[in-house]
């Protein structure tokens, strides 16, 4: 077997193992949470009989191990159970939310990733001169301000004062594509500002590291211009670290948007999770946790695989 295929198969297997471990942690974590689901559903005035009945109905009297395995078996088949609070099928209501979150994350990534890499290349080209310092200062400032504050400031200036974009990012299925894009303009801007600095600085550092190599000198002595040297010779060798940080930030865009979704009243996973945590709706929390874990592990696995594929020594063995 080609060594690259073997490495990729190993990564995949490792990813699945990691996901299983994560599912175990999520389940265990929700088990040791204080409080009782039946109690919180029925309220303080519940009779002991009613509580016992509900517990039996919910399967809470079963041993934890067997509950874990039946939950896992369901999850593998796409059945995440029903929400305790409203009895709805979790897979179905989560599906729509996940779609919205991915929609938001996707457009934020489409803006942020190329911009970050371009700014990184630019910073290297003009390193230690004013464009580099300006880029660093602006991106660092934007990552240092809490995202909810950026959100409200943008809302006030762009939404209220200038009236360029709606301040509430709620999207409905009935909206057209362009209407949706318009609705999410502000949250996309906030997310971009949050993830930009990290990716841009990593791109800059990775390329600067490569710029020390002897083959960069060779390229310079071939009479290439600075930007050609960076783009054609340095960047291909900096792909692995750049992809890693890009994937970490993509994962953050999916998993970490809770605050932004709440600020902009966006119907995504984050809001859904926050709602149900406050209602102690354990199956929903577990389902969200599992999906977040899967996204995180999946994206990092992609980063690993891209790094493997970016290495010519692995791609073309002797």
């Amino acid at each position: 077997m080609h060594p690259v295929l073997k490495l990729i198969a190993q990564r995949l297997a490792l990813g699945i193992l990691l996901l299983l471990a994560a599912s175990l942690l999520i389940f265990a974590g929700t088990q040791i949470l204080p409080g009782d689901v039946a109690q919180s559903i029925l309220g303080q005035s519940a009779t002991p009989e009613a509580l016992a009945n509900l517990r039996a109905e919910l399967g809470l009297n079963e041993p934890a191990m067997s509950r874990y395995f039946s939950w896992l078996a369901g999850a593998i088949q796409g059945d995440l159970g029903t929400a305790l609070t409203n009895g709805q099928d979790i897979t179905k209501s989560l599906g729509g939310r996940l779609k919205n979150t991915l929609f938001l994350a996707f457009w934020a990534a489409v803006v942020a990733v190329p911009l970050a890499i371009f700014l990184g290349l630019l910073a290297v080209r003009f390193r230690e001169r004013w464009p580099d310092k300006l880029i660093s200062a602006v991106t660092l400032a934007s990552i240092s301000v809490p995202e909810f504050l950026i959100g409200y400031v943008l809302m006030y200036i762009v939404g209220v004062k200038l009236g360029w974009a709606p301040t509430v990012a709620t999207v409905y299925d009935s909206m057209s594509f362009l209407e949706k894009l318009n609705a999410i303009a502000l949250p996309v801007a906030v997310l971009t500002m949050v993830v930009l600095a990290h990716m841009m600085r990593m791109t800059r550092a990775a390329i600067l590291n490569v710029m020390q190599s002897a083959y960069i000198e060779t390229a310079e002595l071939k009479g290439l211009s600075s930007f050609q040297v960076i783009y054609r010779h340095a960047f291909p060798n900096a792909i692995a670290p750049v992809v890693n940080v890009v994937m970490l930030n993509l994962a953050y865009l999916v998993v970490g948007v809770v605050v932004v979704e709440v600020v902009f009243v966006y119907p995504g996973m984050g809001q859904y999770l926050v709602d149900h945590v406050s209602k102690r709706d354990v199956p929903v929390v577990q389902a969200c946790g599992l999906i977040f874990a899967a996204v995180y592990i999946g994206l990092n696995m992609v980063a690993d695989i891209v790094s493997i594929l970016a290495n010519p020594r692995l791609r073309h063995p002797k």
Partner: peptide, 25 residues
């Protein structure tokens, strides 16, 4: 003019070709 000079009129062979070739190309 320098870019024309380097790589066309005057070229360079370094001590370590292993380090001077771009590993990704």
């Amino acid at each position: 003019d320098l870019r024309h000079l380097r790589g066309l009129e005057v070229t360079y062979v370094s001590q370590s070709a292993a380090a001077s070739f771009n590993p990704a190309k």
